[in-house]
Amino acid sequence: MKPNLILHVIAKFLIPLIILFALYVQFHGDFGPGGGFQAGVIFSAAIILYSLVFGLESGEKIIPHHWLRILASLGVVIYAGVGIESLFLGGNYLDYTILGSNQIAGQHLGILLVELGVGITVAAAMLILFFAFAGRGRE
């Protein structure tokens, strides 16, 4: 692909902002609009923009394929693990109240961890989808 100066400069300026916004949406989802699903999608959009502008190979260098596979499974494991942890502590499956010293603290911790799991899985899954489609075009 022919390098395009305007695209490169704008992308370099935008990508950190997009990632910062994704983190904000992820961790501020309790108080404002947002959460794991949105944050995961926005984060993967930043990486996809990078791959589109700077080439697929440089995109794959940031996050190699085997990492993506591990991350996609890790998110589901974190989510299910929170449920199993609450089972071991004597509560019901995914009953966060038992995780903290009081109900509010437990629910806060549980929701934070679960949203983190959702965000990781969604971001990794979207990147797996993109790299699968884009990588298919190469001989």
Partner: peptide
């Protein structure tokens, strides 16, 4: 009062209907 989370959508998504989201 139950979760201390002002955004009801997040509370329902992650806590009340957590099994669904899993």
């Amino acid at each position: 009062p139950d979760t201390g989370v002002p955004n009801t959508v997040t509370a329902v998504l992650a806590s009340y209907r957590g099994f669904d989201t899993l």
